[in-house]
């Protein structure tokens, strides 16, 4: 079994507990990358990777990331949904790494949706 080193774990645990004190509880933003067969074939894993990179760079602790299945718009994949607490979700389509980085900066961090990449604002069923 490959293990993280004790030094890695100790450092991570100390930093985590230090930052915990600053958290107000709960997540401010939820990012969902659509990871159905269509999304995966269109590049959703790269989008997920980009989100993970941007999240690590941001040093924010109040952003949750997750994956979901096909949203029923296969031709528009890769897609992601951004939900800010208290606001309706925004669904973004035909994503690239560059588009996702811009969305992360302006919407996730800045709170302002990137209208030119958005399909719709509001709830819908995902499968």
């Amino acid at each position: 079994m490959a293990k993280l080193t004790i030094a890695d774990l100790k450092k991570i645990k100390e930093e985590y507990h230090a930052n915990q004190a600053l958290r107000e509880g709960g997540f401010r933003v939820k990012i969902t990358v659509h990871m159905g067969t269509c999304g995966i074939a269109a590049g959703a894993r790269t989008i997920m990777n980009t989100v993970m990179e941007e999240l690590a760079k941001s040093d924010k602790k109040d952003i949750a990331i997750t994956t979901s299945g096909c949203a029923g718009l296969c031709s528009q994949e890769p897609m992601a949904t951004i939900e800010l607490a208290g606001e309706p979700p925004v669904k973004y389509i035909a994503l690239t790494e560059e588009k996702m980085r811009k969305i992360f900066t302006e919407h996730v961090m800045g709170g302002k949706p990137v209208k030119e990449f958005a399909l719709v604002q509001g709830h819908e069923t995902t499968y």
């Binding site: 079994m1 293990k3 991570i12 645990k13 985590y16 690590a56």
Partner: peptide
Amino acid sequence: RLDTREIKNDLENVPINTPEVL
């Protein structure tokens, strides 16, 4: 071999999806 149960055990109560852990 990677087993997330062992990693979580070592992490104790630090979530495995914390950016630093990832």
